[in-house]
């Protein structure tokens, strides 16, 4: 099942979404004195990119670099040539971010208000906001919950709401940091199907290796470096073997 691109008008009439490429040049990042990423150079052009690695290996830091939530202490991150250090706002319009804990990213008390939040920030006119929010709520099966308090949703529904709130802003690439870690098997599969069906390019950080089956490319992080980089068939068994 393919989800229509939110906000792109009637299904099928939308032009293909522009690609967003991300380039990291010799990126190093430290929190205080603690260096957690060292000399990472990569170009991300594939549509489906997975990121795996041990706890603390630097995956979340890497993910946050991709849309300027974290700026590198040395080196440069370019999104379509835009430097995340100086053009964060433009970068964030292109690259959306979904966090592990939906509770930390739902900012409004009720469902529809929360989905509208990002569009309000972009200064989208009210009529268009209403239309795009409607489309997204329908696409994620949340239209029956439009005025419900967000805290009464199930964990899976909360994560769908968090994803809806990001996708309504029509980013070109979406970074997911462990989107299924807090979910049960059923909701994990549901979120995986949603990610699968996205027209957008994605980067998915996860410990659920089975989510990466159809991916184009998987990066394995180890102690702040990319230890392996290739297709899932090449990298996942290697990673599993190294975990002992």
């Amino acid at each position: 099942m393919r989800w229509g691109r939110p906000g792109a008008g009637a299904a099928g009439t939308a032009p293909p979404l522009p690609r967003t490429d991300v380039e990291l040049r010799e990126v190093t990042h430290a929190y205080g004195d603690r260096t957690v990423l060292t000399g990472v150079s990569l170009t991300l052009t594939e549509s489906r990119i997975g990121v795996i690695g041990a706890n603390g290996s630097g995956k979340s830091t890497f993910a946050r670099l991709l849309n300027g939530l974290v700026v590198p202490t040395a080196g440069t991150v370019l999104v379509d040539g835009l430097d995340t250090r100086t053009q964060a706002r433009e970068v964030r319009r292109r690259v959306g971010f979904v966090f592990q804990d939906p509770d930390a990213q739902i900012v409004h008390p009720t469902v529809a208000e929360d989905v509208a939040f990002g569009l309000t920030n972009q200064g989208v006119p009210a009529g268009e906001i209403a239309r795009r929010v409607d489309e997204v709520l329908v696409a994620y099966g949340l239209d029956g919950h439009r005025d419900h308090p967000a805290h009464l949703l199930s964990g899976g529904q909360k994560q769908l709401l968090a994803i809806a709130g990001v996708l309504v802003m029509a980013p070109q690439r979406v970074v997911f940091d462990e989107p299924t870690t807090l979910l049960d098997l059923r909701n994990t599969r549901r979120v995986a199907r949603v990610v699968d069906g996205l027209e957008q390019d994605v980067v998915v950080v996860t410990h659920h290796l089975e989510l990466l089956a159809g991916f184009d490319r998987v990066l394995v992080f180890e102690d702040g470096r990319v230890a392996a980089d290739g297709t899932p068939a090449e990298t996942v068994p290697w990673y599993v073997a190294r975990c002992g």
Binding site: R92, G96, A104, Q105, V107, G118, N121, Q122
Partner: peptide
């Protein structure tokens, strides 16, 4: 994290 999410959503 909420602060980051606000940034990510353009606040």
């Amino acid at each position: 994290t909420l602060g980051e999410a606000l940034d990510a959503r353009g606040a």
